[in-house]
Amino acid sequence: MSDEQSALQQSGRAPGDPGVWFFIIADMAMFAIFFLIFMAGRHEAPELYRASQAHLDSRFGLANTLILLTSGACMAKAVMMARAGDVAITLRYLLLTLGIGLLFGVSKVMEYGTKFAAGIAINTNEFFGYYFAFTGIHFLHWIIGCGVLTVLIRRVRRSGVNAENINWIESGGIYWHMVDLLWVMLFAMIYLLPPGGTA
């Protein structure tokens, strides 16, 4: 464990701006409701959900998961390097976070494209309604996350890793990890979980 991490743990302070945590918790609560709605629908109509899930390509889901987890790991390194005061490495990890993260957008657009080409849309049935709605709202979070990462890169380029920027990087990192976490939940629930509760 680095000195910076030990200091943070000893201070009892959560990383980032405390207000950001309110946003994160509120947002995750909303997604928790999304998950409950989906699970309730799945319980009501297991056959529909099973037949619809078969049209999803879990390779896209897995690729997206790996992309976001790798990007998230780079973000964690960027936070650590910022706390250590290393501007060049922090910048490099932030660029890697964004660069790898952008692949998620490419993969998602390709995946949506295959669905539209197969004649599947948001109003095809309840499963695909939720699939497009939940992954679409998550996609919007990803777009905002890319914007936040761009701002972080600009701030570090302009003024290095001063205390204010470390707070920004920590806050942006929390948000980016939330985007990861929500995707992992969506992947497991929509792509992998067998409807009807049978394996």
Binding site: P18, G19, F22, F23, D27, N123, A133, I144
Partner: peptide, 25 residues
């Protein structure tokens, strides 16, 4: 305005975007 209120304001404004899905259902 405490920070949590500011973030609540941003979050509510942001979450309204779900309304864009309303005409589809």
């Amino acid at each position: 305005f405490p920070k949590w209120v500011c973030w609540y304001s941003i979050w509510v404004g942001f979450m309204f975007v779900a309304e864009i899905l309303m005409p589809m259902f």
